[in-house]
Design a protein around this nucleic acid. Structure first.
Length: 157
DNA sequence: GCCAACGTTGGC
DNA sequence: GCCAACGTTGGC
């Protein structure tokens, strides 16, 4: 099993939104590296952290799971959609997505500040200077540690 | 709102 | 293929 971290701006789509919807297609990724992680790297059942970015309190809110194989992101075909891509066709899609499913809220939200000050997390990609990728892999150890900071014992899941 | 850092675009 | 200009991200 692989582990991931997904960023989302909570005023657009928050972890609470995912909890109420339960399952959601992760549409709108328009960065090749992030797409490649979804298309080539993810397996159904992988676990992922949900990170809130561009907000008053950035940090990790909880855990979700990869719930589908990669499929073509339908928003790329819709001229009315903000993520429309005129170069994409249903025969030759450019952008893929996976569906994600809510698993568990952290008992305590883990602010970015706490991630930065944790010695076990210094290599997390999200903490690297200049990192802008909306989807990044995390190691199993980083994943467990983040869960622990959030008040969850991941082994019980 | 500022600004550093990065990805993408497009002229050559 | 180079690289300057531009747009975006995201913390502060």
């Amino acid at each position: 099993m692989n582990y991931w971290l997904f960023k989302s701006e909570p005023h657009v789509f928050s972890f609470a939104d995912l909890k109420s919807r339960r399952r959601e297609p992760w549409s709108g990724v328009r960065n090749y590296q992030a797409r490649n992680y979804m298309r080539d790297g993810m397996k159904v059942g992988d676990a992922a952290l949900f990170y809130h970015s561009s907000c008053p309190e950035p940090g990790i809110a909880g855990v979700m799971t990869i719930a589908s194989e990669p499929i073509a992101d339908p928003t790329q075909f819709n001229p009315k959609d903000e993520y429309f891509d005129s170069k994409a066709t249903p025969e030759k899609p450019i952008w893929q997505l996976v569906e994600v499913e809510w698993v568990a809220n952290f008992v305590e939200f883990v602010p970015l500040e706490n991630l930065r000050s944790d010695a076990a997390l210094t290599d997390m990609l999200i903490l690297r200077k200049g990192n802008r990728l909306s989807i990044t892999p995390v190691t199993a150890a980083e994943f467990r540690r983040a869960c622990k900071l959030g008040g969850i014992n991941w082994k019980q899941h």
